[in-house]
Amino acid sequence: MNDADRHPDEELVAFLDDELASEKARDIVDAARTDSDLRERLAFLDSGGRLVLPALDAILDAAPHERLQGLLAAAIARQADDPVPIVSSTATRPSPWQRLGWGQLAAAAAVLLVIGGATGGLIASNFGPADQTEVVTVGHENWRQAVAEYWLLTTADTLAIAPTPDVAREQLALAGRGLGLDLDKAAAPPPALSFRGAQLFDFQGRPLTQIAYIDPDHGPIAYCIIKTGNPKETGLTDETLDGFNIVHWASGGHSRMLIGRAPPETLRAYAEQFAASAG
């Protein structure tokens, strides 16, 4: 038996990694002085580790640093939001219009892009359906929540008086300019709904339009559009917030929602008509 056989590779690699007890390490050093096979084996195993560190460090250099910072920002935003219940008294909550900065929304939008990207649903299903829902809604949930809380203040009496046709046109033109949309065409309402005014808001620096309608059977309904710049298209999705039924979707760099107390199937039918008119 020569020294290379006497010292298994595990021991030699541990020696190279400075992980061997000093007595055994001395033994290898002594043996290598006279055993060329052992020296060659040590050199061979050493060569196997030589480029490992620079190669793995090249991955660090190539890491998508900005995207990772965005993921962290989204995680912080979501974690910060977690203690806030979705459905609760509005009196104890800070104004949702100020609750989340646009930077956090942008970070959350990055998460949406990641999830909707090339992985084809693989990532989306990695953490189970519950977690996925929370991640996807982290950004957009907040503007819808803000609308829902504001809409709580609206009654049929709030919308009792319809604007004149001239005022209606001016309101739609102003609100549409903020969004970069022609709302005369893009917000053609279902026949059952009666127009009651359009208002342009600002949600953390982003234009947000709310167009109010009265449904003769179900009371106030609002069609809201926020400019996000996110090209991701999402289909009609039902949701309930603060006792309201909601249908939301996204297209053309805008997120949209319909909110009211109409039954979900009615609201969805309206949403389909709004979505069709928006193109």
Binding site: A75, G117, A118, T119, L122, I123, F127
Partner: peptide
Amino acid sequence: DVAEDLVQATC
């Protein structure tokens, strides 16, 4: 993409 997802879940 899995790596990014793991980072976010870890955070």
